[in-house]
Structures are given as C-alpha cells and as structure tokens.
Amino acid sequence: MSDARPDDEGGGGDSDAPGVEAAESAAEAESDVPAHRARSRSGRIDSEQRQGTPYTESQVIMPTVKIVAPFAFTYGLFITFHGSGSPGGGFQGGAIMAAVVFMIAFAFGIEATRDWLANTVVVGLAVGGALAFAGIGLIPVARGGAFLQYDLLPVPVKYGLESVEIFGIAAIVSGVLMGLFFLLARGFDSDGSGFGDTGSVDDAGDDAASDLDAPETSDRTAAADGGER
C-alpha cells in the first residue's frame, strides 16, 4: 500500500502533487517535525484540494469493502431483528451497523463519508432512538399502566420488545458510535486548522452551524497550538 500511494499521486491528474510531495519530503528531511506528522498534513491538504473526491487509496481495500459492506450491514440488521430468537439484539446489531460505516470510511476516506452521512442522520439516529424508546415506554403510562408495560401496547408483547430493540437501542448505539468515530477522526480542534495549518478550508463542506463556529475555532486552535509547542 505504501507503494501504491505515490503512484496514485503521480497518475491521478493532479499536476502539482509530485511537486508538493517532493517539497514535503525535502522539508521532512531537514526539519525536526516528526515524519508522520508532516506526511499527515500533506495528505490532508491533498484531499482538501481535490474537493471531496474519494482519494483512491488501495486497489484491494475499496473493492473488498464494496463486496463485504452490504453483507455486514445485512447481518447487523439480522442480529437486530432476530434478537428475540437467537443471540444478539439491538446493541450488538447497532454496533455492527456502525462498524460497517467505519469500514466504508476506511475504504473511501473519512471526509467523504462524513459528507455522505450528514450530521442530521447521526444525531437523528441517536436522539430519535432515545425518543422512540421513551415514547414506547410512555404509551402504556398514557393508558394507565406502568413504564414499558408491554401488554398495554396495541401490538403483541413480543413485538413491543422488538420495537424497543430496533427503534430504540439499535438506533442509539449505531448513532452514538458513528458520532464518536467522526468526532475522534476529526480530533481535538484539528479540523484542518490543527497543527498550524490554515483555518477554515475544511469547514467549507460543513453545514451552517460549523461555518459560524469557524473563526472562533481557529482562534482557539492557534492558542492551543502555541501552548502545545
């Protein structure tokens, strides 16, 4: 894979990429910046310059993920929906479905996946799951029973349990795990402005809330960065 990446850079139609690479490697050789950090900065700039096109990373990983991901996602759904008859349930199935998103992000680039899977989807899953769980629990209360008293639901008890697992737990777990993944991938104040780079390039693709946040973020980053070095 380490061989494949420079070839991609050269043949990808990105005319200034080899020059950037050479300059980076020259700077790498003489400066005291750790090699991996310099390389990571160059990779980030490249993927930003290409405006969200998935950076063709590996000829092995991408086709394999294309084949495996649908099956893994279906299996996550199976684990979620068949929690009543076989091992598993909402938690495990939700984790597997989130893992499928991780898989896709590793194959097609985290930034591209972040754009594909909007923030509203992630937040909607997490918060909607909690609201669905509470709502299913409160329906029996409205009918004069206790919280989550399934026999007061208009469906059989078994389907009440499964609806809690599917709409509640699986949604919460998958949403929160995806959110944690994207959060950790972006890191602490390093959304393109970390490590001393220019500020709001990365925020261009994000939604309005993040745009409003951008100047403040870069200020804070500069302070944090100065403190760090």
Binding site: S84, G89, G137, L161, V164, G168
Partner: peptide, 30 residues
Amino acid sequence: TGVENTVMAVLAAFRGFDTFGEAVVVLAGG
C-alpha cells in the same frame, strides 16, 4: 413475553427501565 431469548426478555422487558437508563447513558456519552 413470547421471546425465546431469555437475555433479551430480561433486558428489554423485566429490566426495561434499567435498559432505558443504559441507553440514555450511551446517548449522554456521545
């Protein structure tokens, strides 16, 4: 409950309120 998997029956029905708390804890963690 009509559910064959006892673990899920306990988690979602008999200990349903605990599970609701755990789910909210996961959300609060996020």
